[in-house]
Amino acid sequence: MFLEQLVNGLTLGSSYALIALGYTMVYGIIQLINFAHGEIYMFGAFAGLFLVTLFDVNIFVALLGAMAFCMVLGMLVERVAYRPLRGKSSRLSALISAIGVSIFLSTLMALLRGTNTTRYPEILKIHTYHLGPLELSSLQIIILLVSALLMIGLQLMIQRTRLGKAMRACSQDLDAASLMGINPNRIISYTFAIGSALAAAGGVMVGIYYNAVWPYMGTMAGLKAFSAAVLGGIGSVPGAMIGGLTLGVLEILGVAYLSSSYKDAIAFGILILVLIVRPQGIMGQKITKKV
């Protein structure tokens, strides 16, 4: 049972990790908690649903289509709601703007699709594999694999490409980066695009795995993913992955061995304890304050 629960936790955790990546990337560059990110994830799930039901495409096309759609959506949100505020106001004003976008997007989807939960069609035939005492479904394997691939791809992109280099430069010092000939607006836009695409991937996979999507699914998932990003050390890409997986496993094991009634309290309680012991998160770097 422990192993099964562990796999349950890793599957849940990888969806948190994919959403957390978007939070952490945006935060790393402009120190904004993008509260609309959960809603982007929700839109991704619905975009996938739309592709599957209308065009009957296979899972990978749906995944790519949803990612492309959310790239555009993420860039659009950045352009409309965040860029006009940048440089003019405090970080908190941008946060409120993000909350406004989040309310707007979830209500929009509720108006378009109704507030009922929609069933995600079975795109895949589910096989169950027995590995000794462990039962693994083909879905779980695919989700773990795709998440791992996306995360490795992201890591390679950030470390090896010109764009990645520019993003790292921007996250170190936006002003200095722009002096070096990097267009910060463009890099920020790309960051939103990549983060949103990952969230969309998470949305589609969650939709397939749990067979259900609904317009308010982004709020709680966004909150959990944000917690995961902070747990891992906000601004750190590997941190978001580790934070997401840790949070997912903690939550599931909390239900399995402690109490399902206190599930969220256990997860958040551990999170607070970790932060008190390690104020910069698991992978975050301690920044020395300069005077």
């Binding site: 703007s97 909350i99 406004g100 976008v101 707007f104 209500t107 929009l108």
Partner: peptide
Amino acid sequence: LFYGALLVLLM
């Protein structure tokens, strides 16, 4: 929907 848009516009 309007409430969300209002927050963004006010900011």
